[in-house]
Computed example of a mutant assay.
Amino acid sequence: MSLSKVPPQEGIVHTYGFNLTAFEFTPSSKQTTPNIILFIGGLGNGLLNVPYLPALAEATTKFKSQDGESWNLVQVLLSSAYSGFGTSSLERDSNQIKKAVQYFRSETGGKRRKIVLMGHSTGCQNSLHYLVNVNNRGDLPDSAQIQGAILQASVSDSEAFSNDLKKEELGALLKEVYDDYISQGKESHILPEKFRKLVFNTPVTAYRFYSLTSKRGDDDFFSSYLTDDDFKKTFGRITVPLLVLYSGSDQFVPSSVNKAELVSRFQRSTPSEYWNSNSKIIEGATHDLGEGSRGGVFDILIESVTKFITDVE
């Protein structure tokens, strides 16, 4: 058994619904703050297993908005955390993110004023889904609105899976799932063992497997084969500032993908007033900026987030 490389962290545990928790890092201030970054991990992520979180949490306590107000980092644990992603959906995650945002706006949650979502990996899909399907709704109460979003390692799960499997093999699996489950109204059925092995040995429903791995499935927001019209339906509907930090050496991105061109397409599809100029490819960074990354990648991420937060109104 390998031991955690993350040192013990000080903080506050919040509960914002049944079996829904969030951890607020308080490494320096030892107290809550008026503003927070709400962090959402990717597939299989749980508390503290994204390497840069402690460093980002420490830096966040030093952030200041233009009005001088301070910030903390909060990691939210949705029911899709750890192995829960296999039976979840982006829609359910967005409902739980909304609960978290409204909790932190409430008296019990500290009456936070500014909230920025930060997604890592599939957490980027959660963040973009919230921006597109929740945050810009005309009937959304102020208590559920966010003031900005950060996407770190916004990779395509579909392309990541196709990178590991032969095209014919993945195509046959998708056909089997569609023919035997999706087309017969069995989206919520748990797939056999051979499918679990492809998703970190996690029980997975027909719906979530198809959503994650098929072209233009519900989770397919960042694939290089998507058209500019596709990106306009997501990035083009953003109504708050957006920071994109793409990992330059992301092991889940196929070598055939031109990362610079892809990020440029994200930018062109986003309304210019909302694309933050600190967006960049972090050269030498692996997917989570952890093992295998070039030295200094944490510093680049923190500097970029610091500049972004300073501009959030």
Results as ranks from 00 to 15, higher is better:
Asn278Ala: 13
Ser28Phe: 10
Asp218Val: 12
Phe161Trp: 15
Phe23Trp: 15
Ser277Cys: 11
Ala55Thr: 01
Gln75Asn: 13
Gln31Ile: 03
Asn258Asp: 15
Ser162Cys: 14
Leu38Ser: 03
Thr61Trp: 04
Leu245Asn: 05
Gly148Ile: 02
Pro7His: 03
Asn135His: 06
Gln31Trp: 00
Ala206Phe: 09
Arg105Lys: 11
Ser249Tyr: 09
Ile238Asn: 13
Trp275Phe: 14
Phe195Arg: 12
Ile37Ala: 00
Leu128Gln: 03
Gly185His: 09
Leu262Phe: 00
Asn126Trp: 13
Ser249Thr: 12
Val132Trp: 06
Ser293Glu: 07
Glu169Trp: 08
Phe235His: 02
Leu191Met: 11
Glu176Tyr: 00
Val257Phe: 06
Leu301Tyr: 02
Ala260Cys: 02
Lys280Ile: 07
Gly42Leu: 04
Gln31Lys: 15
Thr310Phe: 11
Thr286Leu: 06
Gly248Phe: 01
Lys99Val: 05
Ile302Gln: 00
Lys114Asn: 14
His287Leu: 02
Ser154Gln: 14
Glu107Leu: 14
Val204Thr: 13
Ala206Ser: 13
Leu140Ala: 07
Pro192Asn: 04
Trp275Pro: 04
Gln66Ser: 10
Asp139Met: 06
Ser156Cys: 09
Gly42Thr: 04
Ile115Glu: 12
Ser188Glu: 14
Pro51Ala: 00
Leu226Pro: 02
Glu176Gln: 07
Val13Phe: 09
Ser70Leu: 07
Ser269Phe: 00
Phe23Ile: 08
His129Lys: 08
Asp218Gly: 09
Val199Gly: 12
Glu273Trp: 00
Phe39Thr: 04
Arg268Gly: 05
Phe298Trp: 03
Leu53Thr: 08
Thr270Glu: 03
Gln251Arg: 08
Trp275Ala: 01
Pro271Ala: 12
Val101Tyr: 01
Leu170Thr: 05
His120Met: 11
Thr306Gln: 11
Pro271Leu: 04
Gly41Ala: 00
Asp142Tyr: 11
Val263Asn: 00
Gly296Ser: 06
Thr61Asp: 10
Pro34Glu: 09
Arg112Ile: 09
Tyr130Gly: 00
Arg137Ala: 03
Cys124Gly: 11
Lys280Phe: 07
Asn133Leu: 07
Lys280Tyr: 10
Thr60Arg: 09
Gly42Ser: 10
Leu289Arg: 05
Gln125Pro: 06
Gln31Ala: 12
Ser28Thr: 13
Ser247Gly: 13
Phe104Ala: 03
Ser188Met: 15
Asp250Ile: 00
Gln96Ala: 09
Asp311Glu: 12
Thr21Met: 12
Val101Ile: 14
Gly290Lys: 08
His287Val: 08
Asp180Trp: 06
Ile40Cys: 05
Glu283Thr: 12
Glu283His: 07
Pro192Ala: 09
Ser106Ile: 08
Leu48Val: 01
Lys233Tyr: 03
Leu191Thr: 10
Pro141Ala: 12
Lys167Thr: 15
Gln66Cys: 04
Glu261Thr: 04
Phe195Lys: 11
Thr239His: 11
Ala153Ile: 02
Lys167Asp: 15
Glu303Ser: 13
Pro8Asp: 05
Gly44Phe: 00
Asp220Thr: 05
Gln267Gly: 00
Gly46Leu: 01
Ser224Asp: 14
Lys233Cys: 05
Leu198Val: 11
Thr286Ala: 13
Leu151Glu: 02
Leu262Thr: 00
Asp139His: 05
Lys233Trp: 04
Phe252Glu: 08
